[in-house]
């Protein structure tokens, strides 16, 4: 029963009261201003959202994937290389937190160096460090303890657990994501401020209408609704338009391919699509709250 009443109230709000609509004449200027402001803000919100989604994804990937791997670099005279590599592998086998350790083959090492030295490097005759790729378990390994053990058993081995450069990058990505969310919050605040201004202008322009309605027995909610409904629907429509335009712009970003993982990540995938329809809904909500507050303030001046 009360649920029916609720639904009735919502549909009533959307359909509106034709009489109230006619009593309060629409002001073309504030209507256009509201739609425009909502559309622009929604457009910006799409980009802020894309930024947040991409950088939070990045932060997560960097701090998870990289945290799961480390590299052991063995520098030794060519004669001792094999012995030290074997020693290091033995140490790793008994180190807690190491899921697997694998010596990179000459081919793989050659690939890593290719960008700098070209394809035909005679690896065998060069004193190039041997790399061992370590995959960590869920719990991760204790880097300090491993270093201490390596000093004794394979003095040429240097552990690079990626954390040195990983941490600031992941932190930066995380901060970027936070800034994106903050921007979205600010965008909606500005939208609320602009709608408040537009609503106040509309209320002031209709001061006579409001006072006449009040004098013939209109309740505050009836008068406020005539304004709230209009501004909410305008903001909803404007923001929907802006969201679609913003999305089109994001989709039209030139695809940079696999080389620039960050830029290609600037889009929506999976669950993050669900955030998009939230933008117009929040815009409508912001307009609802802002206009209602403005109408309440105006009506309080009136008996």
């Amino acid at each position: 029963m009360s649920r029916r009443l609720q639904i009735g109230r919502i549909t009533g709000f959307i359909i509106g009261d034709a009489q109230a609509e006619r009593a309060v004449p629409p002001t073309g200027f504030t209507a256009r201003l509201t739609v425009f402001a909502a559309a622009v803000m929604a457009f910006l919100a799409v980009f802020a959202l894309a930024l947040s989604v991409a950088s939070s994804g990045l932060a997560e990937r960097w701090s998870q994937e990289l945290a799961q791997s480390a590299t052991l670099r063995i520098s030794a005279p060519i004669g001792q290389m094999q012995a030290q590599t074997d020693a290091a592998l033995r140490v790793l086998e008994t180190t807690p937190g190491v899921a697997s350790a694998r010596v990179l083959s000459d081919d793989e090492q050659r690939k890593l160096l290719e960008p700098w030295f070209g394809p035909d490097i005679p690896l065998e005759s060069l004193p190039i460090p041997q790399l061992i790729e370590i995959v960590e378990t869920e719990d991760g390994l204790d880097a300090e303890a491993l270093r201490t053990r390596l000093v004794g058993e394979a003095p040429g081995a240097v552990l690079d657990d990626h954390s040195r450069w990983r941490k600031p990058l992941a932190a930066a990505a995380g901060r970027l994501s936070l800034l994106g969310w903050l921007s979205i919050g600010l965008i909606f605040l500005v939208m609320g401020a602009m709608i408040t201004l537009a609503a106040n202008a509309a209320l002031a322009a209709n001061a006579k209408v409001i006072s006449v309605m009040r004098l013939v027995g209109a309740k505050d909610s009836y008068i406020a609704n005539a304004f709230v409904r209009r501004f909410t629907l305008r903001a909803l429509a404007g923001a929907a338009l802006g969201t679609v335009l913003g999305l089109v712009a994001v989709l039209l970003l030139p695809s940079p391919g696999d080389d620039a993982a960050f830029l290609s990540g600037l889009g929506f995938h999976g669950v993050s699509w669900l955030w998009l329809p939230v933008i117009p809904v929040v815009a409508g909500l912001v307009a609802f709250v802002a206009t209602r507050a403005a109408a309440r303030r105006t009506l309080k001046e009136l008996r």
Partner: peptide, 28 residues
Amino acid sequence: VVHQDCGFLDHLPIADNIALPLSVAGQS
């Protein structure tokens, strides 16, 4: 109340002005 200045909404036809108290009271 018959107001000294009548208090009509100038953009509404007179019949709608007369019916205004009904519509604001929610009576169709």
